[in-house]
Amino acid sequence: MSSKYHVRAPSNRLEQAGTVDELIIRLAHSQANENEKRQLQEWRRESPDNERRFREVLLIARTAQRLSVQTQTRRIPASEAVRIAAERDRQRRAIWVPTVGNSPTRTFLKLAAALALILGAAALLDRAGQRSADVVAERPRFVTGAETGRSVQLPDGTLAYLGRSTLLEVIQAGVSPELRVEGRAFLAVPKEEGRRTIVHTSAGQVTVLGTRFDVRSEIGELDLLVLDGRVTIAVGGQDVEVSEGEMGIARDGALEGVVQVENPETRLTWMGNAMVFLGTPLREVFDEIEQRFDVDINLTDPALAERRVSAVFDGESFEQVMYIVCRVVDVRCTVTDTSVTVDATG
């Protein structure tokens, strides 16, 4: 079944000023001052609905922090991005929101205003990223512990999800970046004319020309699975090209060969529900979501299949993933317990 939800009219001065969602987002980003925190506290105490809304927007804001929305717009301050996004949001107060059946009941996050604001602001930030000090550093270095992985964005626009006990380091930035990876990582490297990225591992060197791939490098062993595009692996004076749906294998300083992988998703179970997309066609995004969450997605209009998605999902639920993807590519999604139907909006 499906229904429509409408954002209710502002009921107090804080909402009338159009600042409630902005303040919650600022709080999520550790940018709220003491006066703003006090205003939010007072507003939350006014009603259980306010407290529920606060928690939902806070969840969306933290989810959005892990998203990477690729754009080609001018660089502007984050504060200006929020102002522009808020103005856009005020012009589109009603939004179609998909729901699911009752067994069990699962409902998409309904705060469309908050999500539109977050995504609008994120889309206006420059690709280098402005979310954390380690991301914007000139030569960032990421190390995960033995218990959990993490998603990251590099200054050149590369998106990655790192497995447990993994190192990702930028050796050289610029037009021809060089990275070091030890452990397990899934990388999405931007495809740009004249650009190549070199990935160094203890077992060999990988040359990337814009692709998404899974790499495992451990004690002289290298397994590299390509999901999109192609890469070249160089080991012990030999090199081999690995294309989409193929895995290159190296052991003890020698190439063992390239094998066809019939179902690449089966080799990505180590990622859990994490997914990384960079300019990925919507049809491929939905293929991965189908396999990851065991659902059927019906794309009714073939013209929608080539719309592009750039995002990192790091443990979000099926509801959150679908809601965000459908918003980013501006499509209408109708969800039941086991399937999704996707139509053009308007």
Rank of each mutant, 00 (worst) to 15 (best):
R92L: 11
V7I: 12
F277T: 08
G183W: 00
Q72I: 09
L124Y: 03
M247S: 10
P77Y: 12
R292F: 03
P155D: 11
A185R: 02
V199T: 11
E288D: 14
T280R: 06
L40M: 13
L109V: 06
D252P: 01
P77E: 13
R90H: 11
V199L: 13
F293E: 08
E246Y: 06
D330Y: 02
L117V: 04
L299F: 04
D287Q: 13
Q291M: 07
T345V: 15
P177K: 05
N33C: 13
L115F: 00
D126F: 00
R332Y: 01
A188Y: 02
F54C: 04
L167A: 03
L179G: 03
Q320C: 01
G245L: 03
V295I: 15
R74D: 14
G145C: 00
G210Y: 05
S68H: 15
G272M: 05
V152T: 09
E256Q: 13
G272Q: 06
V261M: 08
A173F: 04
R139D: 02
D343I: 04
R230E: 14
R8H: 12
L58D: 12
S3K: 11
R90V: 07
A64K: 03
P264N: 11
S317H: 06
A133V: 14
S217R: 00
T105C: 02
E316M: 04
V258H: 08
E192D: 03
L119T: 06
E262M: 13
E46V: 08
L187I: 02
Q172T: 14
V331N: 01
M322N: 06
L225K: 06
L304Y: 06
E34Q: 14
G279L: 05
R307Y: 10
T197C: 08
V285E: 09
N102R: 09
P140K: 06
E319G: 01
G245T: 04
I289S: 07
V20F: 15
V276L: 12
Q72D: 15
V97A: 05
L278W: 05
S317R: 07
V199H: 00
V340R: 01
S217F: 01
L224T: 14
P48I: 09
G101N: 11
G149W: 00
F318Y: 09
A188W: 01
F213S: 05
V226R: 04
V189W: 00
R88F: 14
E87R: 11
T266K: 14
L168I: 11
R127E: 12
E256N: 09
E138H: 08
D49H: 09
T300V: 12
M1E: 10
L27W: 14
D156V: 12
Y323I: 01
Q16R: 15
T232S: 14
L124Q: 13
L111P: 00
V328C: 01
R139V: 10
L111G: 00
V321K: 02
R75S: 15
R90T: 12
R75F: 15
G257N: 08
T105L: 08
F318C: 00
P10H: 12
A303L: 10
R66V: 01
V261G: 07
L67V: 05
V312T: 14
G220P: 05
S3A: 13
A94H: 10
V325F: 03
D223I: 06
G253Y: 08
M1L: 10
G272K: 03
V20A: 14
W96L: 12
V321Y: 01
K37F: 06
S151W: 01
T334H: 04
Q65V: 03
I289H: 07
N298W: 12
E218V: 15
S103C: 04
G194M: 05
T73W: 13
